[in-house]
Every structure is written in structure tokens, then in C-alpha cells.
């Protein structure tokens, strides 16, 4: 469950999120819809405890994440959230496999299990043949899928996706929607920030939240 109550995030020169409230139940798929600059990415960052709000309450899976000290916030991210970043945020010099297994490094998962889980996911996403290739040499679509695999490797109950189709063509967008349908079927909470109509009109969402002020 993700619950925002009167959340405001203010930077020195802008206020991307102001008095924003929303509630997404566990297992629900929600779309954050709005034009560029309407605060979608900031809302995702707040939900993932990547940043703190200026005011307001944020509760994710029963935890007041806005108040978590940094050590606990990183633990929360590791255990509860998978993030698909708009620009993928892959390590370009590491292989695809190493990128995908990165979130498991601080955990006590045995090495062999890490590899097995990564290959399982990469196979599902059709990039298992790219395992040994440096992430920087992958195409946009492949990088996108590598970042999805990385987001899912910890089996997070919540998946956050930021503009996931921004670099994809129509065919890959359909493929991505299939992947999201799979995530939804697994009972995970999915929050997608997008202004792509292909996603908003796909019928995948249980809820569409507008971010326009």
C-alpha cells in the first residue's frame, strides 16, 4: 500500500509536488499521469524514499518512509521497492548480468542463487543472450529490459516505473505492457509514471492519478 497525505516537495527554485494526496492499495496498478514537469518523477522518488518530502506523510507498506533515517531508507529500498528509472541508470561498464544482480550484492543471497535468479528474469525478458555484454553496448530496448530485470530481482512487493516507454518503439511498448501485466498478475503493487497514451489507454491500470496542479 502506498499512501500520500498532503505531501509537498519544495526545492530552492521550484515546487514540483504541492499538497498531493493519493492512496494505492496492495496489488493495485496505478498510473501517474500528467504532462512533463508535473512532478511524476518526484512522486516516484518520494514513494521510493529516494528523497524526503518538505512536509506531509508518506506511508509505504505500513512504514512512514518520509521519516526513515538514511540507513533504514536504503534497507527499505532494497527489500520493498524495485525501481525502473527513466534513464535506466545501468552501470555501462558492467555486464548485463552484473547489472541485474547488483541489488543482491548487499544481501546474503548465495552467488549461485543470484545468477540463477538473474538468468530466469533475463530469459523471461528476452535478454539472456546479452548476459555477458557490457550494459553500455545494449540497445535502448535491451537496456530498458535489463533495468526491469534489475528492479525485479529482489522480488519487491512494489515496482515503480518512471516513463518506461520513453525510449521504446510501438512493438517494444507492447512487449513492456505484457511484462507489466505479468508483474500485476504476480500481485505486486505497480506505480507507473507516464504521459504515454499507449499505457494509459491499455487498460492495465486499476487507477489513474492525475498530477496536474
Amino acid at each position: 500500500m502506498i499512501k500520500f497525505i498532503s505531501v509537498t516537495k519544495r526545492y530552492k527554485d521550484s515546487v514540483p509536488v504541492e499538497d498531493f494526496s493519493m492512496e494505492i492499495s496492495a496489488g493495485e496498478t496505478a498510473i501517474l499521469s500528467g504532462r512533463s514537469g508535473s512532478g511524476k518523477t518526484t512522486i516516484l522518488a518520494l514513494a521510493a524514499a529516494l528523497t524526503r518530502p518538505t512536509s506531509g506523510s508518506i506511508e509505504v507498506n505500513g512504514k512512514q518512509t518520509a521519516k526513515l533515517p538514511e540507513e533504514f531508507a536504503s534497507l527499505f529500498r532494497r527489500e520493498s521497492v524495485g525501481i525502473i528509472f527513466q534513464n535506466y541508470n545501468l552501470m555501462p561498464n558492467l555486464s548485463t548480468l552484473d547489472n541485474v544482480t547488483l541489488p543482491l550484492l548487499p544481501t546474503k543471497t548465495p552467488f549461485r542463487q543470484q545468477r540463477e535468479r538473474a538468468f530466469e528474469l533475463m530469459e523471461k525478458l528476452g535478454i539472456d543472450n546479452k548476459a555477458k555484454i557490457a550494459a553500455g553496448r545494449l540497445s535502448g530496448g535491451e537496456q530498458q529490459r535489463a533495468s526491469i530485470a534489475r528492479a525485479l530481482i529482489n522480488n519487491p512487493p512494489i515496482v515503480l516505473a518512471d516513463e518506461p516507454t520513453s525510449n521504446l518503439d510501438a512493438k517494444l511498448t507492447d512487449k513492456l505492457l505484457e511484462i507489466f501485466a505479468g508483474i500485476k498478475a504476480e500481485g505486486r503493487t505497480l506505480l507507473i509514471a507516464t504521459h504515454d497514451k499507449a499505457i494509459t489507454e491499455s487498460g492495465i491500470a486499476d487507477k489513474i492519478i492525475r498530477t496536474e496542479k
Binding site: S6, R52, P53, S55, G56, S57, A66, K67
Partner: peptide, 11 residues
């Protein structure tokens, strides 16, 4: 408290 003042104090 979830006010701006409290968050600033926590930081």
C-alpha cells in the same frame, strides 16, 4: 508531526 518544521529538525 509531519510538518516542514519537524522534517527540517529531523535533518
Amino acid at each position: 508531526d509531519t510538518s516542514e518544521k519537524q522534517y527540517l529538525l529531523e535533518k
